[in-house]
Amino acid sequence: MRAYLNYFKLRLITNLQYRSAALAGIFTQLFFAALYIMLYLALYESNTGVKAPMDWNSLVTYLWLQQAFFAITYPYLRDNELLSMIQNGNLAYELIRPQNFFLKFYIKMLAERVVATLLRCIPIIIIGMLLPYPYKLCLPPTLGNFLVFMGSLILSCLLVTALSLIVHIITMFTIDSRGITSAYMMIAEVFMGIVVPIPFFPLWMKKVSEYLPFRFIGDFPYRAYSGNIDIMEGKTLLIGSFIWMTLALIFGYLISKYALKKAVIQGG
């Protein structure tokens, strides 16, 4: 356990070196926050007669949080070290280490996400809160909402990292990873509400989203924050999120074991 914790710390420090990348990230995220808010504003303004699926404050807050915590919830952060390991034979080194392969890379990816988020989220949240009404990032209505939000965000980060690593492990052993990766990305992006929040979905797609883990990554935390999902429902969803996370971790652990058993070391 100590070894893993130390490795986590080490990765945190390594990732802190990429501060200029974070600055570019902040600009990108601010741009997209502004873009999406204006898009929805135009939709809301020109359809005053239609009952919108989310009230305006919840929606703006949702869009801001999505951009602020983009690095936590992004479904697939590419790790080239892991992907090229089969081709260049470095996998051999991993096999002789005493640490578990899955856990080690899980921690590496987790650290990457945590640092990327910490460097980006604060300026974005501050800017969002300072803006006037139609653009304002609101505070959560009660402390309870905030706690559910924090809990769900932590679970979301643990879950998405596991999923991302599983996709890496599956694609490590195929010739071309792009097909599987982009299929996963599409399903994940749509059903975690990156492009359109789930309340805007047609009914049948809402039903589908309830059976997938992705709503716990990008949709549940942000809606819990603004009270769009109330605290009672939030508590039940937290349990669901926890179950999905556990399942993903167990599945990832098993699949990595299986994959390593089958692995052929080539190159050197």
Binding site: A42, L43, V50, G179, S182, M185, M186, V195, F200, P202
Partner: peptide, 29 residues
């Protein structure tokens, strides 16, 4: 072949946004 298929997925996400939004709203400005 895999790569060609993946192109379909990427494009679909863009297309989906517009279709989903206009499912709820009937015009934008």
């Amino acid at each position: 072949i895999m790569n060609s298929i993946s192109q379909l997925f990427v494009f679909f996400t863009y297309y989906f946004v517009i279709i989903a939004l206009f499912n709820k709203f009937d015009n934008i400005k």
